[in-house]
């Protein structure tokens, strides 16, 4: 029955290619569909939030925490509405994670607050008795690297067309000219967060114009909705 094909190698190859490509197309085509565009209201990360995100990655929070709420009732009861693909449009790389030693954090900004994170990151067992999450005290005196955050935002804008040209976002372009303004903007944002914190060293550092990692991290966690 297949001898006819076997005697026509070129035609056979084309046939095999088409059959296999079909399976590939089925996987790829939905990615071009509207469903994977940014969800309305999804905003690019500010510089401070990117710096916090870098801290999150550096300290491997994603090793214990996922950021992907699956459509199961037990999950949406605990964490909030299930995640949509378009919500990750500006996440590079995405931090879905694959292991939940701790809870999912995709919407943690909706039910935890700056002052809670401050207590929790300083000493998790002070608010959750029996927590096995490590304390992150070093974040309270280590400062973030805003220049790297700026470089990441600029890359996202140029390479991935992330829409940074909008009100409330730092101006990105010529790093010599635009960085100081962007830095000032990040500091303003940091001041708002430090005002809700209690740690005096952190408050002093921000008043001096520094940005401790904890402030950026909290800005990032609060942005997770």
């Amino acid at each position: 029955m297949f001898h006819w094909l076997e005697k026509r190698p070129f035609f056979f190859s084309v046939g095999v290619f088409l059959v296999i490509a079909f399976a590939g197309l089925i996987e790829i085509v939905p990615d071009f569909a509207q469903a994977s565009r940014p969800v309305a209201g999804t905003k690019p990360y500010t510089l401070l939030q990117i710096a916090g995100r870098q801290t999150y990655i550096k300290d491997s929070c994603n090793a214990c925490h996922s950021q992907l709420i699956r459509p199961f009732k037990s999950e949406t009861d605990r964490y909030g509405p299930y995640s949509l693909s378009g919500e990750y449009a500006y996440d590079r790389p995405f931090l879905w994670g694959s292991k939940r030693t701790g809870p999912d954090l995709h919407r943690v900004g909706e039910y935890r607050t700056t002052d809670w994170h401050e207590n929790h990151m300083w000493e998790p067992t002070s608010v959750v008795p029996g927590s096995i999450m490590p304390a992150y005290k070093h974040m309270f005196h280590q400062n973030v690297d805003l220049e790297t955050a700026y470089a990441e935002a600029l890359t996202d804008k140029i390479v991935f067309n992330v829409p940074y040209d909008q009100p409330g976002m730092p101006k990105l372009g010529n790093s010599k000219e635009d960085f100081p303004a962007a830095q000032k903007m990040a500091l303003e944002e940091a001041k708002k967060i430090a005002a809700e914190m209690k740690n005096q060293d952190v408050k002093d550092a921000v008043a001096r114009g520094e940005i401790p990692e904890i402030v950026a991290l909290i800005a990032y966690l609060n942005s997770l909705h």
Binding site: T113, W116, H120, V127
Partner: peptide, 18 residues
Amino acid sequence: LVQCSPCHGIAGDGMDGK
């Protein structure tokens, strides 16, 4: 216990003014 205790404490005492 699930939604409130991380902030208000398991006993509801607010954990030393948190």
